[in-house]
Amino acid sequence: LQAFIKTLTGKTFTVEMEPSDTIENLKAKIQDKEGIPPDQQRLIFAGKQLEDGRTLSDYNIQKESTLHLVL
């Protein structure tokens, strides 16, 4: 599935991932794409901060969901 990552500066980019991917995997993909170390990334979806060990499906993240990236 493709999801949108929106930063506080208003920049939006897309990442490809599977519902079974962990938040940790997602942070690694963001690092590959944007060069931001995972330990500096905080991802917010539906008002909740996402925990590394959980999966996208745990948070009911669907295709074309928008996640907010806070540094």
Rank of each mutant, 00 (worst) to 15 (best):
S65L: 09
E51S: 06
L8D: 14
N60R: 05
T66D: 04
K48N: 10
S57Q: 12
K63S: 15
L43W: 02
G47Q: 03
T9D: 14
G10K: 03
R54H: 12
T12H: 08
K48V: 15
A28V: 12
E24T: 08
K48G: 06
A3T: 10
I30K: 00
L50D: 01
P19N: 09
T9L: 09
T12L: 10
T9C: 14
T7P: 05
P19L: 12
G10Y: 03
L26Q: 00
R42F: 12
L67G: 02
K63T: 15
D52T: 05
Q62T: 15
P38H: 11
M17T: 06
T55W: 04
I30E: 00
Q49V: 15
I5D: 02
F13K: 00
D39R: 10
G35V: 02
E16G: 07
E34W: 15
L1E: 05
K29V: 06
T14F: 10
S65R: 07
L69T: 00
T22F: 06
Q2C: 10
L43A: 00
L26I: 08
T22W: 04
S57R: 11
R42C: 12
L43F: 04
Q62E: 10
P37H: 11
N60W: 06
L69G: 01
L26F: 03
G53V: 06
T66V: 15
T22K: 07
Q40K: 13
I30D: 00
Q62V: 13
I5W: 02
K29T: 04
Q41N: 02
T55S: 10
L50G: 01
I5Y: 01
D58L: 02
H68P: 02
S20A: 09
K6L: 08
F13G: 01
E64T: 10
D32T: 11
A46R: 14
D21P: 01
D32F: 10
L67K: 01
I5H: 02
G53S: 12
S20P: 03
F4E: 06
E18A: 12
V70K: 06
Q49Y: 13
A46K: 14
A28H: 12
Y59S: 03
A46V: 06
T9V: 07
R54E: 06
T66R: 07
S20V: 05
A28T: 09
I30C: 00
